[in-house]
Design a protein around this nucleic acid. Structure first.
Lengths: 230, 230
DNA sequence: CCCGCAGCTTGACTAATGTCATGTTACGTT
DNA sequence: AACGTAACATGACATTAGTCAAGCTGCGGG
């Protein structure tokens, strides 16, 4: 059963936060609450979607396996983020697999419930579209990065994003292990290591999970500079 | 004003085809119908979305400009395909720009109209989600390709997709110019040229806009083989 | 307390891709 | 028909990232 703290997180999630309390209560009371161990599968590619998933704690990765067995990480979610909205409402197979990359708490909202509620109040549809659009946007941003930036620049942007979230400014903790960061940024762990080395020259120090950025603007310039001008 | 032929195409579009005729008629009668020349801008990144767009003829590309001026092509649409659904319904700025890459006919459905219709019938929301999910899926597929395949392999998949559409089997026409194909596949035109050369060894002949594939299965094997095993 | 393994780093090498320069071809314009 | 331009091809070279191999390191289990 769900703790109140978990419900509070769910209420603040992008998917739910703009809904009237009454609907949120309905959804929360019918939701399934589950824990996952690190490495546990939440769902598999090609499986039929039966629920929308909201991460309450821990980290979840979405990824695709190519025919050759290579894994492409599509996104990584944490507390307050949801995924599977568009798939669940259409009863189609997931295009990706989902796996817990740390111990996780995940809330599952059964899709028939969401669908029936949506028929009563179209506002639900707008909320789902909001979440879906966020995912769309983040995929577009990733595509741009992959097509227009070098590995080291993508790492730089990744660090800059962490800085924005953590108010601390120039010192951040890497949120998950480097193998996963490498996957998320579309490179091999070895390349990530080397990218970190290169960033030393623009004032970035990495020690274990701890990153220190001496000059955020310099890092931003680096990330946005033309690869051919360096 | 719209020709009947255009309306017929619009009715068959993924966005509209599953809606009841009554709604389609309402939407078609309030839509804006426009022609665009090659190179003409349909909307710009950061502009606020006011409509959903349905391509009736020609080709449209969606792309992002990176801060350095490099252009990353996100997708390319043609007859019967729609874009901008999720953005329009949320009144947020477009994350991409749209440009006609050939002379085009495009239908614009004003978003307030769609929104008000959605309040009457939530089924509209499902249709919009269906289109949005298709885009999401195609972006995920693109990400996987970029992260897990070489340039030549992506070109091979591109050709295979053309084969599936054109019933003709092994002879296809390249649908738009090679610069755009290169952009769509995340490479420079020079690299595309070289990728085509490499594909000669697996039975692909390119002549102008015409591609001839001697053995589709061989090409498929090539596209799905492990890059490190070649 | 030591061991062993997984995560990570580093080096040497190779493959892939971008860059720049040059040349060709096709096509619309005058 | 001559011209100019944009698309495309190709060669030489630089940069980037992947591969393979070796070694380091911190943490949990015996």
């Amino acid at each position: 059963m769900a703790h109140e703290a978990q419900k509070a997180i769910a209420r603040q999630s992008l998917l739910l936060k703009s809904l009237p309390d009454q609907h949120i209560d309905t959804l929360l009371s019918h939701a399934i609450w589950r824990s996952y161990d690190r490495g546990e599968t939440i769902f598999l590619q090609e499986e039929e979607a039966k629920a929308v998933h909201v991460v309450l704690a821990g980290w979840v990765k979405l990824f695709r396996m190519s025919p050759t067995g290579a894994e492409a990480v599509v996104s990584v979610f944490t507390r307050g983020e949801s995924f599977g909205e568009a798939v669940a409402l259409r009863n189609v197979p997931y295009p990706v697999s989902a796996e817990a990359v740390s111990p996780c708490e995940v809330m599952h909202i059964p899709s028939p419930l969401l669908l029936s509620l949506m028929k009563e109040d179209p506002e639900i549809g707008v909320s789902i579209l909001a979440s879906t659009f966020t995912h769309l946007h983040s995929l577009v941003a990733q595509l741009e990065q992959l097509k227009a930036q070098t590995g080291a620049q993508r790492v730089a942007e990744f660090l800059l994003n962490l800085c924005e979230e953590n108010l601390d400014g120039c010192e951040v903790e890497l949120p998950y292990d480097k193998m996963l960061i490498a996957g998320r940024l579309g490179m091999k762990p070895e390349s990530l290591s080397r990218a970190f080395s290169r960033l030393k020259t623009v004032g970035v120090k990495i020690n274990r999970n701890h990153a220190e950025i001496s000059d955020i603007d310099r890092l931003r310039d680096y990330a946005e500079s033309d690869p051919s001008e360096k």
